[in-house]
């Protein structure tokens, strides 16, 4: 990479305490996020995609969770080492996050104008009038119709799609370098989802921002991502540029996931389900975490977890965590 990465995550392991024992919810997560890039984290419930984002934001609840290992480098600093007040300055300013459910993320008793302006007053020290003017500007940019008349409206007066636009406005108010979008369109109808996806792509371009886009929907990911990391049971099992990933899914899980999606654009009777289910974090298999469900399982897969290695025949940008299909060492063992 010519330019240095905006955000780089290396060996991130986040643990939660269950019945007095610490269990890793995500393990050995590593990726770099380039300027203006959209990296998608995709996987099913409980795969650790949201935990990864919350770890970056420093929002893992301290009572039951901790970032146990790894570095998250951003603007020359290692985020997990920062004190709370330093992290608070970064959060919402340099790194912002939007969530799936815009109703529960907005304060129901404050007007949306106040909530967007609050971000600017806190991080930019603006006076009320100036903050309000900038809030209006950003609400216009996220295409809230007649935003001027709606500044003093409350969240319940907005539709789901409009609330998500308000959330995006709050997140972008300080022009963050990195936006973490956690399933931002999952609660929306498809026509509204398409509008929000296009809006996010436009704003990302305009601000020169990088985005981590979390989704369970491979269709949405194909629409918006530059690069995709597929997660399973707390690990990245495959990472590749978006075209490469969909053309050459290499990890058996990625491949199976793609075959289990009924597609609107073609007729295919070959819908293949993945047998079994994701193991709970307190009972992870010793070897490859996907091995119990995998059709290509070899003896080594149950003994040791495979590393994330380059896929033979493609550049170093396409890596997979599989003894059978990636790396050069495993096949012989």
């Amino acid at each position: 990479m010519v330019e240095p990465a905006v955000l780089s995550v290396d060996g991130l392991t986040t643990e939660f305490r269950i019945a007095g024992k610490w269990h890793a919810a995500v393990r050995d997560i590593g990726f770099e996020l380039a300027r203006n890039e959209t990296l998608a984290l995709v996987g099913e419930s409980g795969c650790g995609k949201s935990i990864t984002a919350l770890s970056i934001m420093g929002l893992i609840p301290k009572a039951a969770g901790r970032v146990a290992k790894g570095r998250i480098l951003f603007e020359g600093r290692n985020l997990p080492e920062l004190a709370d007040d330093e992290m608070r300055k970064i959060r919402g300013d340099r790194i912002a996050m939007i969530f799936q459910e815009p109703m529960t993320s907005l304060n129901p008793v404050l007007t949306i104008g106040f909530q967007v302006a609050e971000v600017l007053r806190y991080h930019r020290d603006l006076g009320p009038g100036e903050a309000r003017a900038q809030a209006l500007d950003i609400l216009d940019q996220v295409k809230i119709p007649s935003a001027r008349d709606r500044l003093d409206d409350y969240p319940h007066q907005f539709s789901g799609g409009m609330r998500q636009r308000v959330m995006i406005a709050m997140a972008l108010a300080c022009q963050p370098r990195v936006l973490l979008a956690d399933e931002p369109t999952t609660a929306l109808d498809v026509t509204i989802q398409a509008q929000v996806l296009v809006l996010l792509a436009e704003l990302k371009q305009r601000y020169g921002m990088s985005m981590i886009f979390i989704s369970h929907n491979l269709g949405v990911v194909a629409t918006i991502a530059d690069r995709v990391a597929v997660m399973y049971a707390g690990e990245i099992v495959e990472i590749a540029p978006v075209g490469e990933l969909f053309d050459r899914p290499t990890h058996p899980y990625t491949e199976a996931l793609l075959r289990s999606i009924p597609r609107v654009d073609r007729t295919s009777d070959a819908l293949v389900a993945i047998p079994g289910q994701v193991p709970p974090i307190s009972r992870m298999p010793q070897g490859c975490r996907y091995a119990p469900r995998c059709g290509l399982k070899q003896p080594i897969c149950e003994r040791a977890g495979p590393p994330l290695e380059p896929v033979p025949g493609s550049g170093a940008t396409h890596r997979a965590r599989c003894w059978v299909r990636a790396g050069g060492t495993g096949a012989a063992a």
Binding site: S159, G161, L197, L218, G219, T223, L258, D265
Partner: peptide
């Protein structure tokens, strides 16, 4: 047509055909 066009397809090449309609229900 709008519903069909807005339904995401797991193929990055299909993104150019992703259609958008304005407004909400």
């Amino acid at each position: 047509k709008a519903l069909r066009g807005a339904s995401p397809v797991p193929d990055p090449r299909a993104r150019v055909t992703m259609m958008r309609i304005e407004g909400e229900v």
